[in-house]
């Protein structure tokens, strides 16, 4: 029952939003955005940016984390972690806008900025997950004649999987939020509705955009949570 609280709440909120919207008489500006085609297109953009970011982060941050735990050089490890930590203290909006000024506006910039911004949780969780594998487990794997790759793939990664997945989940929530800001550099998404609603003083548009983004964030977090439970190796 507890597991289904989030989807129930999301459906209820969306229902209330729909009922409220249908009770309003919309002016021409509102009609231009509050229609199914426009909303679906913005949602598609938003999800596309979020999913592309998460996929790129997974592909880049997990191997980086693995490589960093393998390196013997403390300097390399400290440098990468230091940069990643400062990156985390950097506000998402700053990263996105700076990149737009230095490079260009649009989708590619938003994607790069989002990847930079969501990188750390996966990186640090990959490292933590691998480091917390019990030394006895690692030694007996080696002592039984597993090659270093076999130890990594059959023992360390499966044991670290829950921690890595938790990092990925955090990173997904980060990127849903940061994708909202992508509107500032013309990369689309539901942020468009929020910003338009605010500048044009059309609160129904603003509220619809904000509620949809919130619902997407909650749903993706929930899906990631369920996936985490299903993918966690039994026995851990």
């Amino acid at each position: 029952m507890k597991r289904f609280t989030t989807p129930i709440v999301v459906v209820l909120v969306l229902g209330v939003l729909l009922i409220w919207l249908s009770s309003l008489t919309l002016d021409s500006i509102e009609q231009r955005t509050l229609n199914v085609g426009y909303i679906v297109e913005r949602t598609r953009e938003h999800l596309g940016l979020t999913i592309a970011t998460s996929a790129l982060v997974a592909v880049l941050a997990i191997p980086t984390g693995i490589a960093l735990t393998r390196t013997r050089s403390r300097l390399v490890r400290a440098t990468v972690l230091g940069i990643a930590n400062i990156g985390q203290a950097t506000p998402a909006v700053g990263v996105i806008i700076l990149l737009a000024i230095l490079w260009q506006t649009g989708y590619s910039t938003a994607l790069v900025a989002l990847v930079i911004y969501s990188f750390l949780p996966v990186l640090s969780n990959t490292m933590t997950g691998l480091q917390q594998v019990d030394e006895g487990v690692r030694e007996s794997a080696k002592g039984m004649g597993m090659t270093p790759n076999q130890v990594l793939l059959r023992i360390e990664l499966p044991i670290a999987a829950p921690v890595i997945l938790a990092g990925l989940r955090t990173s997904i929530v980060f990127s849903v939020g940061a994708a909202t800001i992508a509107t500032f550099i013309n990369a689309g998404g539901l942020g468009d509705m929020i910003v338009n609603g605010l500048t044009l003083q059309r609160f129904p548009v603003l509220i619809t955009g904000a509620v949809l983004v919130a619902c997407i964030a909650l749903s993706l977090d929930w899906i990631a949570g369920v996936a985490e439970d299903l993918l966690r190796p039994r026995g851990i």
Binding site: G177, T180, G197, L198, A210, V211, A214
Partner: peptide
């Protein structure tokens, strides 16, 4: 997301 919360 923060922009959504602020907007609401």
């Amino acid at each position: 997301p923060s922009l959504a919360l602020l907007a609401i």
